[in-house]
Structure formats: structure tokens, C-alpha cells
Design a protein around this nucleic acid. Structure first.
Length: 219
DNA sequence: CTCCCGATAT
DNA sequence: ATATCAGGAG
């Protein structure tokens, strides 16, 4: 994939998905952004947003969450799945914020990925949406799937895909490219039933005619 | 590589 | 009934 084609894809998608809010989770500060993004692993944002009000009403700050009773916390976050691991992670992350970052959320990749439950994807989301920093490209399941289908990257390894996207796009677009790829992945280029006929970048995509049509014809 | 795990779409 | 969902840890 060449840079010119990659930029064309980006501009087509931005035209389809104009946005003022570039996130899908209902957070109001960096702490809430961090916690909700950890909880969003392998879970739809709708499910996360549904439990968010109860979660932050019970635990408004890192101090409150660090002192949470695990069983009580698990009951609140259970609908998001992986609730035992996630509960342990967000209590641990809150405790780390208190112990090492004066109760605040660090704004550097190296610090964020030391927090339990936080990898590069979650760290990139927090950096971009809570601090406006484009340290890298967040590669989630949608970004990975679309990158492979469109041909933005040839690998299935999220870290390699991130490097490919960082090489293809200027740094100021690293946050937005994640947003438009996820949006397109949800609304058109879905995992099971991609709507290739109504896709406005299908003429660029190498995917139609392969798995795309085969998947679509199954129904 | 497996495991974590409930909600939702197909 | 099964694949998938704003992944990460062991």
C-alpha cells in the first residue's frame, strides 16, 4: 500500500463519517476514559456505557476505586464480561495511579502500559481521547480486520499493523484513522456480513471477490 | 498458545 | 448454535 492510496482511503472515510466526537465511550475525564477503555476489551461500547453511570456514581475517583470491594465491583461491571480479571485490573490500575502518579492518569505511553489491563491499544485510546496526544495508532479488532481487508497492512500482528499505519499516515491523523476505520468496520465492513456493494472504498479494496462476497452470499 | 466471560448479531 | 465484540495477561 502506498501513501497516496492510504490518504485517499482516509479522506473518503472522513467524508462518510464526519465527526465532532471521535470516541464511543461515555467518559468525562481522563480517569473515566482509562477505566472505561480497559472495560471495553472484547465488549461493545454500548454495554460499557450502560454500566458506566453506576460505576462512577459508586467510585467517582481513583481513591474510591482503589479501595473498592472486589465482589461489589464485579457485580457492577459483570455485563462487560471478563469481570473478574477486569475488576482486578481496574482496582490495580487505580491503586497504581495513587501510588505512582499522584492519583492522576499519566500522559505517556511508557507509563500507561505499566498499568494492569492496559496494552498499547488502550494506551493509544487514552492518550488521544483524554490528552489529545497522537503517540501511536490504536489497533483494535476493527482496525486489524479492515487494515488486512483493504490492504493497509499485510500482517495480523497488531503491533506490526500499528507500525504500518504510522508509516502510511502523518502523525496528526493517527487518532482519526482509528476512529474512521472502527466506524466503517461497524457500519459497513463488518466482520461477518460486510456490505461491499454499499462501500465507498470498495474500488480501492482488494477484498471484494474473496471472503467478502463469500461471506455475504451465505445469507 | 490459552484463558478470561457476558451480551449481542447472525 | 456460533461468531464477534474499542484486548490483555500468563
Amino acid at each position: 500500500m502506498d501513501t497516496t492510496t492510504a490518504l485517499l482511503i482516509f479522506h473518503r472515510l472522513v467524508a462518510i463519517y464526519p465527526h465532532t466526537e471521535t470516541h464511543f465511550l461515555g467518559f468525562t475525564n481522563p480517569f473515566e476514559c482509562l477505566i472505561l477503555t480497559i472495560l471495553s476489551a472484547q465488549t461493545t461500547d454500548a454495554t460499557v456505557n450502560r454500566i458506566a453511570p453506576a460505576l462512577f456514581e459508586r467510585y467517582p475517583t481513583a481513591e474510591d476505586l482503589a479501595a473498592a470491594d472486589p465482589a461489589e465491583l464485579e457485580e457492577i461491571i459483570r455485563p462487560t464480561g471478563f469481570y473478574h480479571a477486569k475488576g482486578k485490573n481496574i482496582i490495580g490500575a487505580a491503586a497504581a495511579l495513587i501510588a505512582r502518579y499522584n492519583g492522576g492518569v499519566p500522559d505517556r505511553m511508557d507509563d500507561l502500559i505499566t498499568l494492569p489491563g492496559v496494552g498499547r491499544k488502550t494506551a493509544n485510546i487514552v492518550l488521544h481521547h483524554a490528552f489529545g496526544i497522537n503517540a501511536g495508532v490504536a489497533v483494535d479488532t476493527h482496525v486489524r480486520r479492515l487494515s488486512q481487508r483493504i490492504g493497509l497492512s499485510e500482517t495480523a500482528d497488531p503491533e506490526k499493523i500499528e507500525r504500518d499505519l504510522m508509516a502510511l499516515y502523518p502523525q496528526e491523523l493517527w487518532g482519526e484513522i482509528t476512529y474512521v476505520l472502527i466506524r466503517h468496520g461497524r457500519e459497513v465492513c463488518s466482520a461477518r456480513k460486510p456490505a461491499c456493494p454499499s462501500c465507498l472504498i470498495s474500488n480501492i479494496c482488494r477484498y471484494p471477490g474473496k471472503t467478502c462476497e463469500a461471506t455475504a452470499k451465505k445469507t
